[in-house]
Amino acid sequence: MKDVLKIEMYSRPENEGFARAAVATFMARLNPTLEEINDVKTAVSEAVTNAVVHGYDDETGVINMEVEIEGHALGITITDYGMGIENVERAREPLYTTKPDEERSGMGFTFMEIFMDSLNISSCYGKGTRVHMTKIIAGGNSDK
């Protein structure tokens, strides 16, 4: 089975919760465990929040979210057209943040990496950022 969900939204904080809930509902057909749902919700929340907070610096912009399902594989792509990341390698480091005075802890990318199977970040400084994550949802179908 292959299916896709595409959502275009404004970079409003309220949409962080909406994006999480939408992905959780969409992936339900894979029969995920509670832990798998939580993992994916956290990763989506981190990526969308980054687009709102860093990509657009709390201004209004467009965020695209694409969720793909193929067999047990889940793929999520979150794109913003905001300010981009100057040094992606450094941004991935745990505890690294460019906004310490706004109480960011620098854990977003680390959580995405831990909770998903793969995390790919492509960013063009001044143009925007695309985060692509994948995870195999073994779900209730596995005997683990």
């Binding site: 956290t42 981190e46 929040t49 706004e102």
Partner: peptide, 10 residues
């Protein structure tokens, strides 16, 4: 039931 890095920062 849900918290992300924004909670940690807070």
């Amino acid at each position: 039931k849900f918290m992300d890095s924004s909670g940690i920062g807070m």
